[in-house]
């Protein structure tokens, strides 16, 4: 009983480990919230698949501190992001911007969907057109059909 209580207490107390260190957190909660939001948008360039908010990498920490410094200096969110993009390029954005070089990336799924829809439409139109007069059986098919109906006896056709 006591063990269970201790375990439950330990589990309740243990917060998930965050990369953001206590010393980095800004005193102003509103500013800190903006910093967290911006950090989640920026890629850690060392790990490349984590945001700087999630990453423990040294460079990620430096960038988190930098983001907070820019915010304290009065930059808007957009200005902070532009500051980082000017140094590390669009790759630093986890949400890639919509621009000529990313056109295929953004429009790709829609293009595939349209292509698929067009294919289905063509297929349906052809099927309804063909439904009026089914294609006659070929000589080969006729022979197989006769063989099947002959030896199935009283069973239903195609039962096997």
């Amino acid at each position: 009983m006591i063990h269970a209580a201790v375990l439950a207490l330990a589990l309740l107390w243990s917060a998930p480990a965050f990369a953001v260190e206590p010393g980095e957190v800004l005193a102003d909660p509103a500013l800190e919230a903006r910093a967290r939001d911006i950090s989640r948008e920026l890629r850690c360039l060392v790990c490349q698949n984590q945001s700087i908010d999630d990453s423990n990498a040294d460079l990620a920490r430096d960038l988190r501190v930098l983001v907070r410094e820019r915010l304290k200096a009065g930059d808007s969110d957009r200005e902070v992001i532009r500051f980082v993009v000017a140094r590390y390029g669009d790759f630093v954005l986890l949400d890639p911007p919509f621009q000529p070089s990313t056109l295929l990336l953004w429009a790709g799924p829609a293009l595939v969907l349209l292509g698929g829809a067009a294919g289905i439409a063509v297929w349906f139109r052809r099927r309804t057109r063909n439904a009026d007069e089914p294609a006659p059986l070929s000589a080969d098919e006729r022979r197989r059909l006769e063989a099947l109906t002959a030896d199935s006896g009283g069973d239903k056709a195609g039962g096997a």
Binding site: L59, D62, R87, Y88
Partner: peptide, 13 residues
């Protein structure tokens, strides 16, 4: 020593 100049150069490795 702070790594700030490296950030200005876009250094990551």
């Amino acid at each position: 020593r702070t790594g700030r100049a490296a950030i200005d150069w876009g250094v990551y490795g």
